Amino acid sequence: MKKTFKNKLKSAKRTLSNFTTKIRHRANFSADVLWLSIGENCLTDDILRRHHRKSYSHVFSSSRSNIEYVLQMEQDNYRYLLPKEHLVHCIIDSHEVIRSGWYKTCANIYSPRHMEGFEFSHHNPLDVEEDRRAFKRRIARTLEIRGKKNVVFAYHHRLNERSDLAFIREKLNTLIDLYNNDDVNCQIVFFYQQLINESEQSRLAFFPSQSGLLEFVCHSKVLWGGEDQTAFWAKSDDDLFAEMFATVDAWRRFHQRHNEADITPS
């Protein structure tokens, strides 16, 4: 009884919070270009927010996931994400989270917690009704924009000894193909951190692809993680992220001018 009341109270608070957020950012829904996070965790979404790029909360904004889970959901239209028979309670470091029992198959190339099933890190769609409604809205928005809006997705991969960047690039390009057509364009900002020595200068390396996959290596000194909140949210590298977004803007402007030139009558 106590837990039920607690969940209902949480649902009411979330309803008010979600409504307020929607009103505050309502102009973002009609923007010409949408900027959305597709994981692998909340860091990407927070970077977009801090740099005033985030359009709205996406299915993967506040979760632990990987590009394979993203593709599985995109390819079956998120059919199996919210049915309660596919959601399970899990205890992680004495903290309860909800995970998908359906979207859980992937290659062994990600950080451990990103391979244990799609994780609702900050929501409980199994027990909190507003969380279910919120994800239904996110899914509906996602299906509505596919192939109809210009989209820039942002995807951060945490490098580890099993990382397979070529495999991840292949999957990201598959996602681009799902969203691209003759009328709209999709790009993916694919970024990851490469730690360097204290004596070295932080820097950004950019590897663009004609497909729209825009790859960035952030060479920096402080690991994005741990207990320190500045390090956890990668705030010490905000200058690199600002440069990254400026580079994406320049790339998109160049290709827009190039495409317009191609269709201008001679």
Rank of each mutant, 00 (worst) to 15 (best):
M1D: 01
K2Q: 05
K2I: 04
F5N: 04
F5S: 05
F5M: 04
K6W: 09
K8F: 07
K10N: 02
K10G: 00
A12N: 06
A12Y: 11
K13P: 04
R14S: 11
T15P: 09
N18C: 04
T21Q: 10
T21W: 07
R26V: 10
R26P: 10
N28K: 11
S30Y: 07
V33A: 08
I38H: 04
I38L: 08
G39Y: 07
G39R: 10
L48G: 09
H51F: 03
H51Y: 05
R53L: 00
S57D: 15
F60W: 08
S63N: 03
S65W: 01
N66R: 11
Y69Q: 02
Y69G: 02
L71C: 07
Q72P: 06
M73D: 01
L82F: 04
K84Q: 13
H86D: 06
V88W: 09
V88L: 12
D93V: 00
E96Q: 15
E96P: 15
V97E: 14
V97I: 13
S100V: 02
Y103F: 05
T105Q: 14
A107L: 12
Y110Q: 02
S111F: 07
P112T: 08
H114Y: 13
M115N: 11
F120N: 12
F120Y: 14
S121L: 08
P125E: 15
L126A: 09
D127W: 14
D127E: 15
E130G: 00
R132L: 10
A134W: 09
F135K: 13
R137I: 09
R138E: 14
I139D: 06
A140R: 13
A140H: 08
L143I: 07
I145R: 14
G147E: 15
K148V: 00
N150S: 01
V151A: 01
V151Y: 03
F153C: 03
L159A: 15
L159R: 15
R162Y: 13
L165W: 12
L165P: 11
E170I: 07
K171R: 01
K171P: 03
T174E: 08
L175N: 06
Y179C: 06
D182P: 09
V184W: 04
I188M: 11
I188K: 11
F191V: 03
Y192L: 11
Y192N: 14
Q194P: 13
S199L: 03
Q201I: 14
S202Q: 14
S202N: 14
L204R: 14
S209N: 11
S209L: 11
Q210C: 09
L214A: 01
C218G: 05
C218K: 09
L223H: 12
Q229K: 05
Q229E: 07
A231L: 10
F232K: 01
W233N: 08
W233K: 08
A234L: 03
A234P: 04
K235Q: 11
D237T: 06
L240D: 12
F241Y: 04
A242R: 11
A242C: 10
M244G: 02
F245R: 03
A246Y: 10
D249P: 04
D249T: 01
R253G: 07
R253C: 09
T264I: 00
